[in-house]
Design a protein around this nucleic acid. Structure first.
Lengths: 163, 163
DNA sequence: ACATTCTGTTGTATCATACAACTAGATGGT
DNA sequence: ACCATCTAGTTGTATGATACAACAGAATGT
């Protein structure tokens, strides 16, 4: 195992693995919508995401959300409206800038988020039940590493997460 | 490292890891649509997926596709129609069952797939460029394992991939 | 002060999707 | 052989998420 073919074996392995990653990430993505809809019918993937982000940020405005998720501001505006109607989000004018609105998660919003987290976690636990702990830890680390390579700060650009 | 706290440490590690996996899988999913649209504008995520599946299966019918991707048959029907119109897919009647149609990827379809694969791979390679080969291989294996835990046979059920 | 820029809303179009109704072909029981 | 039932796929229709464009109101810079 130390002849000339090492180089090509190495690059073949890389190529195979990275193709597999591409394929599997796509597969993962493809089924997400239906699954999410089934798991918590009243909290769509988008609204759930928005709620989580506002919660994590301890309040933010619509423009932040749009930038972060590569969504048009009109889309965010409508999704936020829905969350306001549902009482899961509240807003108050930004004292520093009267154009902007500061969004905050309500008590009901936190409850909904907690409920969603529980059922989601139950599902993941079910799927990951027969994994060894060390595999779980390593897989989590890889996913984190992978996601951290996202062009987060700059413009999301072509080819963000999936392909 | 062999006292009573081992048990709780172990379960804590499991819980932390599985929460991280849940979180990261969701993060992965969120940005997918916009990214996919940008990466290859003429081949949407769905049509790309369908094309790939047909190619992998070396011919299959619409029902298989619907089951595999948790899509309604009407959705698949329309997406397949689009691919037929684009000339990327062809179909012929199944000799064994005159209700069914056997779908096959055309030459143009393979070209489109190859082109998409190139740009996609370029993006992934860019993101995975500083990963060691063994990490790539392990990550790919974990993703495959994770995706294989899908409730493939039975009804897709609540909570398939993401949450 | 006025032009420009920014936040957010609303109008409109598109697209993927689901559900329901339907057609045509297959299958099984009597 | 016949009818009931099941299955593959298409089409009609509605919904929901999205983008783009036009806009209003507020902030900012020259």
């Amino acid at each position: 195992m130390s002849d000339v073919s090492d180089v090509s074996e190495e690059s073949l392995a890389r190529e195979t693995a990275s193709q597999a990653i591409a394929r599997e990430v796509i597969a993962l993505t493809r089924r997400a919508r239906a699954a999410a809809a089934q798991l918590h019918p009243e909290l769509s993937l988008v609204t759930h995401t928005i709620l989580t982000h506002v919660s994590d940020q301890r309040g933010c405005n619509a423009t932040d959300l749009a930038a972060h998720y590569m969504l048009d501001k009109s889309t965010v505006s409508r999704q936020v409206s829905a969350l306001l109607r549902m009482g899961l989000l509240a807003r108050r004018p930004d004292p520093r800038d009267h154009r902007a609105q500061i969004l905050e998660v309500t008590e009901a919003g936190y409850s909904a988020l907690a409920a969603a987290a529980r059922s989601r976690q139950a599902m993941f636990d079910d799927r990951l039940g027969d994994w060894g702990t060390s595999d779980l830890v390593r897989f989590a680390a890889y996913l984190e590493r992978y996601n951290r390579t996202l062009p987060r700060g700059g413009r999301p650009a072509a080819g963000d997460t999936v392909a």
